[in-house]
Nucleic acid binder design. Structure first.
Lengths: 111, 111
DNA sequence: TACGTATTACGAGTGTGATCGTAATACGGG
DNA sequence: CCCGTATTACGATCACACTCGTAATACGTA
């Protein structure tokens, strides 16, 4: 018999309607988190936390992904040992039309 | 003869091209500063620092206006004893198209 | 020049967030 | 059931930003 799970590994996400400007801007004020969002938008696929090459440790990355999830920017789910990340583009568009596209355009402009 | 001015009261502004996503989001991550931007956009006119009714002291307001100016969000100039503030809508549109309108729309959505 | 209003400089207190290292947990496969 | 990989929880450190009070500065007017 398998060892009972001590934690159900449930990931809380805000509803689309509950996403706030405050949490969005707090999340996007960090360059590491903007880089995560940009990369997710670039590849257009779901990526595991380990699929990012960022200048911070794993534990710090965990923190950043949590902030993005709690802000409503990304949706996370478990797939085996990995935790996948998906940009909530549709939810964000419904909540704040044009905001995410404008942000992505702005980040491109800086190149 | 007038007393010589000890300070020329020159206000530094970033060029439009020098505005960064980082400084913009840092500036907009604060609710007081977002309120300032929103109010400037609402009235569509130049407003003195004292024309805002904000839940912080004058000295804190001075700080917030400085952050907005250094981020490139507002243009400031002296007019008599007052310091005026103007939203740099055109400069922002040239630098990051659609970003400011999307932000203003997002703030409206939260009402 | 004297006064009143508007704004600022300065220093300090305070909280929060980014970061890390280490130890622990979860899961697939052997 | 054991192992390796992926992720996390926890505690600690550290820097920075928001906030304030006080004293000082700038300017228009009398």
């Amino acid at each position: 018999m398998a060892r009972p799970k001590t934690q159900p590994r449930i990931l809380e996400h805000p509803e689309s309607d509950a996403i706030t400007v405050q949490s969005l801007f707090e999340a996007l004020a960090d360059p590491v988190r903007r880089e995560i969002v940009r990369h997710l938008a670039d590849v257009g696929e779901h990526l595991s936390c380990g699929a990012f090459d960022l200048p911070v440790t794993r534990s710090t990355m965990t923190h950043h992904f949590s902030v993005l999830r709690e802000a409503g920017l990304v949706r996370q789910y478990y797939a085996g040992t990995m935790k996948m990340n998906a940009l909530r583009a549709d939810d964000l568009e419904a909540r704040f039309p044009g905001l995410l596209p404008a942000l992505l355009t702005a980040m491109d402009r800086e190149r």
